[in-house]
Design a protein around this nucleic acid. Structure first.
Length: 630
DNA sequence: CTTAGGG
DNA sequence: CCCTAAG
């Protein structure tokens, strides 16, 4: 229903609002619930339809930039039924593939050898597979991508399906943004040129490995793919977890002066015997969350990391006289127990990695004894946020050696059925916001492989020969981090216990300092709207009205990362004002009168609509559709 | 998160 | 553009 409504058009080129604003909340809820029940939501469908159109209609979408988005909906309106079905079918078939469990197999129960682990960290725990480590490679990556990284590790599942596919159906792939989330899936999607939003184009590679750091390839379709999602969208839960502190967290954190100790740690509790990771629950939840999250406007967060984090950190070094080499202290080691899962042999030699329950057991925090508990909490949060929120890179270790070539096939790296028994390791490397100073050599090489148990011996990952480029690497695969919320706080506290008594004395006394506002967030630079942008905005508002800024943003400015829906709303506000004042009073780049006229027209129209809607709402929802001629 | 409005 | 109350 919703879908149809949204595809309907009102008269005069204006789209009739799908539903009164007041009634939209319930709609959202309904959507959410539906999705969680593994049903196809209208939103999914809409997205899928759009994606399909993009695929199918790639050739005929020759419309000008400002019409591309309109074309999508226009076409939907015309043949929505067939499309609807097509999409549904496609989705269903996806599910069918999911059920083909016998076609895949697990790398399960990645049980490292305890003695090897101990040699590194003297941990009594036998279960250590993943490690936070600082390696020499950490510092060299692009800076764009950590802006919005939010990670949490708890339950991870990495699935290598029959085929690799990069996500292309989502308009956000146009963002060229922060996350490079590569997903492994079973579908092959042909390389296409896609038109999205206001006709912005971008060629999206088919191969995940071609996904560069500044490419964003999320997808809503993943909602249907529970298994993949658990891995893919885990990145989101860290936020949920830390959200306890909410805003304050975002603003306050990000010191790099956490030292991380490599200390014995109790990992016994880390193991969750439950092998079923509740993929449905997590996947859907994460998926939903990500749907929203990924279309966030990370500007603020990124600003925070790029600016505040670094500057304040450095400032602290000077002001607070923390230990001689605070940066050097960024080594962060942790381990994550991997869970055992039933292993299946796959005819297709595909691998399914199951990683469960990432943990951050040890944190070395430096904080003065005189600090308050509150500041301690914040410090811990800073440490964690810096490391996790700053983004993580996955290192792949084969036989204890790091594999740096992302384009190598697993087979080529020696990861095969025959050799898996030896060791396949992963290394979680912090991706510090400021990646200037490399870590000390000792720490840099402080990466430990996790050993793969015998069960892995049977797992021979080999990529389908169909791939033009055998560039699917574990590293890429893991880039889509999975996670699970909830345990962050317990982890913190436990981590602190053994550490603080040992090092508290050596710490410099530093009065907790409230970050100044200027440090937290600087005002964004002013970026006047161009006439083209105004044109796009006007057109979008003409269609969506003045109360659907999110739609406007998504449709017309989805690729303009610096324009938030609030910006668009504000701009409209000023546009209306501009249109009303005399040309002499106007400043800045002159907006064509034609556009200003349209602004007034649209504004008047939608104001009127709004009035009508409110009246109708008063009369009762029943009459609404009738009155609007729906 | 989105909207709506004031600053 | 920012900030924030409301939903």
């Amino acid at each position: 229903m919703v879908l149809q409504k949204r595809l309907e058009y009102g008269f005069n080129g204006y789209e009739v609002p799908p539903t009164p604003r007041a009634a939209r909340s319930p709609r959202k809820s309904a959507f959410k619930k539906k999705s969680e029940n593994n049903q196809i939501s209208s939103f999914d469908l809409l997205a899928a339809v759009a994606g399909k159109l993009l695929l199918e209609g790639g050739g005929n979408s020759s419309s000008s930039s400002n019409n591309a988005s309109a074309d999508i909906e226009d076409e939907c309106a015309v043949k929505k039924e067939p499309l609807y079905q097509a999409v549904a079918e496609e989705t269903n078939s996806d599910h069918d593939h999911d059920n083909g469990a016998e076609r895949r197999f697990f790398i399960s129960e990645i049980l490292p050898k305890a003695h090897e682990m101990e040699s590194f960290n003297r941990s009594p725990s036998p279960l250590k597979d993943f490690h936070f480590g600082s390696t020499s490679g950490i510092t060299s990556d692009s800076s764009e991508k950590f802006g919005t990284r939010e990670l949490a590790f708890e339950e991870t599942k990495i699935d290598s399906g029959d085929y690799y596919r990069s996500e292309i159906n989502d308009k956000r792939s146009m963002l060229g943004g922060i996350n490079c989330e590569t997903k492994l899936s079973r579908n092959v999607v042909p390389k296409e040129e896609h038109h999205i939003g206001s006709g912005f184009r971008k060629v999206i590679p088919r191969n995940p490995s071609e996904c560069s750091d500044d490419t964003d390839l999320p997808s809503r379709e993943n909602c249907d793919d529970g298994e993949n999602l658990s891995a893919r969208y885990a990145t989101k839960s860290f936020r949920s977890t830390l959200r306890l502190g909410d805003r304050r967290i975002r603003k306050v954190l990000a010191s790099k002066f956490c030292k991380v100790s490599v200390k014995p740690k109790d990992n016994t509790t880390a193991t969750n015997p439950d092998l079923d990771l509740k993929p449905d629950y997590y996947s859907k939840k994460h998926c939903l969350k990500s749907l929203r999250s990924e279309r966030n406007y990370p500007i603020k967060k990124r600003r925070y990391f790029d600016g505040y984090t670094a500057s304040q950190s450095e400032e602290r070094v000077k002001n607070e006289g923390l230990s001689s080499s605070p940066r050097k202290a960024s080594a962060f080691l942790s381990s994550i127990p991997c869970q055992k899962q039933p292993a299946f042999q796959s005819r297709d030699s595909h691998v399914k990695l199951g990683i469960k329950s990432f943990r951050v057991p040890e944190l070395f925090i430096e904080i003065p004894e005189t600090a308050t508990v509150g500041s301690l909490k914040r410090t811990v949060l800073e440490a964690v946020t810096t490391i996790l929120g700053g983004g993580l890179r996955i290192g792949v270790l084969v036989h204890g050696k790091k594999v740096r070539d992302d384009n190598k096939m697993l087979l080529q790296t020696g990861v095969s059925l025959d050799t898996l028994s030896d060791s396949l390791g992963f290394c979680l490397e912090p991706n510090p916001p400021q990646s200037t100073k490399p870590f000390s050599p000792e720490e840099s090489d402080f990466v430990r492989p996790c050993n793969v148990p015998q069960t892995l011996t049977r797992c021979l990952p080999s990529l389908p020969g169909k791939h033009a480029k055998p560039s699917n690497s574990v590293e890429n695969d893991l880039d889509s981090k999975p996670s699970a919320p909830n345990r962050a706080k317990p982890v913190y506290s436990r981590a602190l216990i053994p550490v603080s008594p040992l090092h508290a004395q050596a710490l410099t006394v530093v009065p907790p300092r409230k970050p100044k506002r200027s440090e937290v967030a600087q005002r964004r630079i002013r970026r006047p709207f161009s006439v083209a942008e105004v044109e796009a905005l006007v057109q979008a508002v003409e269609r969506f009205g003045t109360g659907r800024w999110r739609d406007v943003k998504l449709r017309a400015f989805d690729n303009a990362k610096h324009r938030t829906y609030v910006d668009l709303k504000d701009k409209w506000k000023t546009l209306v004002h501009t249109a009303r004042i005399s040309p002499q009073q106007r400043r800045g780049e002159p907006v064509p009168q034609e556009l200003l006229d349209r602004v007034l027209t649209a504004h008047a129209y939608w104001s009127q609509q709004q009035g009508k809607q409110q009246l109708l709402e008063g009369e009762g929802p029943q009459k609404l559709e009738t009155s609007l001629g729906l």
